[in-house]
Amino acid sequence: MFQFIFKKLMLVVPTFIGITLLTFTLIRLIPGDPIEVMAGERGVSPERHAQLRAELGLDQPLLIQYKDYVVNIFHGDLGKSLITKTPVMEEFASLFPATVELATCAALFAVLVGLPAGIIAAVKRGSIFDHSVMTFSLTGYSMPIFWWALLLMLVFSVNLGWTPVSGRLDVTYWIDEVTGFMLIDTLLSGEEGAFASALHHLVLPSIVLGTIPMAVIARMTRSSMLEVLSEDYIRTARSKGMAPLRVIVVHALRNALIPVITVIGLQVGILLSGAILTETIFAWPGIGKWLIESIARRDYPVVQGGIMMVATIIIVVNLIVDILYGVVNPRIRHNK
């Protein structure tokens, strides 16, 4: 077991090196001088330009810049934003809870809707319900997030007034930031109605961000269930006269869930990348929006550091999933 974990860990090292190289070179391949972009039409004098380049460390050869960057990462220093001059780590830490909160709610939505829909569709195969779930999930899967978000916003927020348009909390609540998770902070604040308001603000963005994972989960659950339902032992269980619900939940679902859980794990990456669009539309103060703006401003340290952090999280989640498999399934662990 120890050897297995060690092997998995060693595989992570080249991935990390690859990520640092990719983020470092890719943003520098985009033409454009960050100082010119910062100055705009106003421009800067050549002397000032040289001075700023030196201050930002951009006058060094690329190799030295890369070396400094990697050495600093090992010291836990991701540099400072060129624009706000705040440490990248600090900005990341202040924005990440919002992304996690949204991703968690979106994942909950995806699982709570996708799983039962997939199961019922499989059990009632060929019924109207089955067809509608499949059509709906195919639509959901291919829906452009941007359009979907604006559509929901127009219908539910502007026309019906059921949900707020954007933001995390009604502006009338002035609560202190403690954990950065609005649902927790509103509870801690003890202000009446604040928690409900925070929850209320989560509804639309969670649905938008959760739509694609929900569709994937529903389809996966359905096909996996169909496969299991045609197995001999299910027929045996049925012929024994077992209650149909018991057959489905206890016998079929447990086995059908294994590939579904893999898929749910894979959605973490989708939730984090999908967050970029969803956050921009709903003015959600998370890391997706932060990264997009930093790319536009050529804020090298933020882009490098931010992508580094996101990639690290995805790698760590996958590593944990891999190890868990090994724990659960000996066949994977011993497969040389």
Binding site: L150, S157, V158, V165, S166, G167, I281, F282, A283
Partner: peptide, 15 residues
């Protein structure tokens, strides 16, 4: 209330 998208700002104004 920081809202980068102009269509969303408009939606908020209307709401």
């Amino acid at each position: 209330s920081i809202t980068p998208d102009a269509s969303v700002r408009y939606a908020k104004l209307k709401a």
